[in-house]
Amino acid sequence: MSEQTQSRRIMQGIYSRNTRSVVSRGMRVIARNNWMIVLTGFFEPVFYLLSMGVGLGALIGSVQFMGVDVAYAAYIAPALMAVSAMNGAVYDSTMNVFFKMHYAKLYQGMLSTSLGPFDIALGEIILALFRGLLYATGFMLVTTLMGLNLAWTALLAIPAALIVAFGFAAFGMAITSYMKTFQHLDFVFFLMMPMFLLSATFFPIEVYPEQIQWVIMALPLWHGVDMIRMLTTGIIDFSIIWHVLYFAVMIVVGMFFATHRLKSLFLR
């Protein structure tokens, strides 16, 4: 059996190669109704940056990143960017998907057409990435104006944020397939809160004892924070490869997992 017929068999009954129509529906809605949400999502990290970066930063001065002194605001700005990529992607792929599935019945309507679950899932992920792109670009503009991007490599932080968002969105979609009620979603946000606070977001990972460091380094957000921080500060070493690889695996596993859960997510 050739590879093509193999892949056709997995996609049989769940994919009609029309993800485009799902994306264009989403764009239409964002353009018409949801620009407010886009705007608020943009301001959240900006407010964090102003209060903690500028406010606390005045007291703290600078922190060491890989042996180099970095101004506190410039230290946390990339972390906030990673966090907003994560939050946006997780929110879109869990809460939003769950709501559209069970309350707005949007997918029920889409699945009355020749669209399959894979078209819809991929479309939703692309839309989540598009939103992530808007947030990341907006945030970059602000940090550039504030002089917090210390090297040209900061430009690469935008695609890096998209990689982070993709990883989280793929996983979020898979997790949503197990959800039965909104209470289950609380559990997701319960896990994200400590990850946000503890993933070397606001202080260097070296403050932890070694065992705790290993735990943090196993979590995805730390990889996102460290990767984007390297890019915006220009303090880059070989270990950035591991971060990219971590997300590559997360995306592949998440997509595989999500695709195989699609039937239970959509075709009950």
């Binding site: 529906r25 019945k105 949007l106 699945l111 009355s112 020749s114």
Partner: peptide
């Protein structure tokens, strides 16, 4: 063959599921 079948069906569900954002 979900997608192929549905390309030839017109489906009217029990509860309206119109797209309220459009």
């Amino acid at each position: 063959n979900g997608p192929e079948i549905r390309s030839m069906l017109g489906i009217v569900p029990q509860a309206d599921n119109l797209d309220e954002e459009l």
